[in-house]
Amino acid sequence: MSGESLLVRKIDWGTVLDHIPAWRANQVLKLLNLESLNRSSDISVIVLYNVPSKKLGRKDIVKLYHHMVSEEEAKILALVFPQMTINYIRDWKVEKHSPGLPEKIIGKIRCPETTCITNYEREPATPRYIVEREHGVVVCEYCDTLLEISRIPDFLKG
């Protein structure tokens, strides 16, 4: 499949992340940590930046050929980018997915508090956050520091 045909081709199976705020697709990719996937997988990724959108004015789109975003990742994406739509594609058919909210986020975010034990790289302490949606924050389970949900993209690990 050539690059050009990928752009226009429909997906037989995979995930389309639409209505990402303009120029934020890189943060989405960072959260998905695709480089950690098995290198022999036949995944392809198309990223569209700053395309016109009726809803948002401008938006980004990420198309993941032959990769299903996990439920855990979908929940975090829905938390951080509430206007994003997540579509799973199976056998050419599009299913809109509405994930619930995560209760905890494990490992994906580094703690904004520099003196937190999870920032001691040699200590095996994995950052772990409790989501407090009603206060618009996640809370580090180790050091109690609050992080605004809107600031999560600035603290993604990886």
């Binding site: 003196t115 937190c116 034990i117 999870t118 920032n119 001691y120 180790y142 109690d144």
Partner: peptide, 10 residues
């Protein structure tokens, strides 16, 4: 006693 926040929980 440790200077890191979260050290005791860890």
């Amino acid at each position: 006693r440790h200077p890191a926040r979260g050290s005791a929980k860890f």
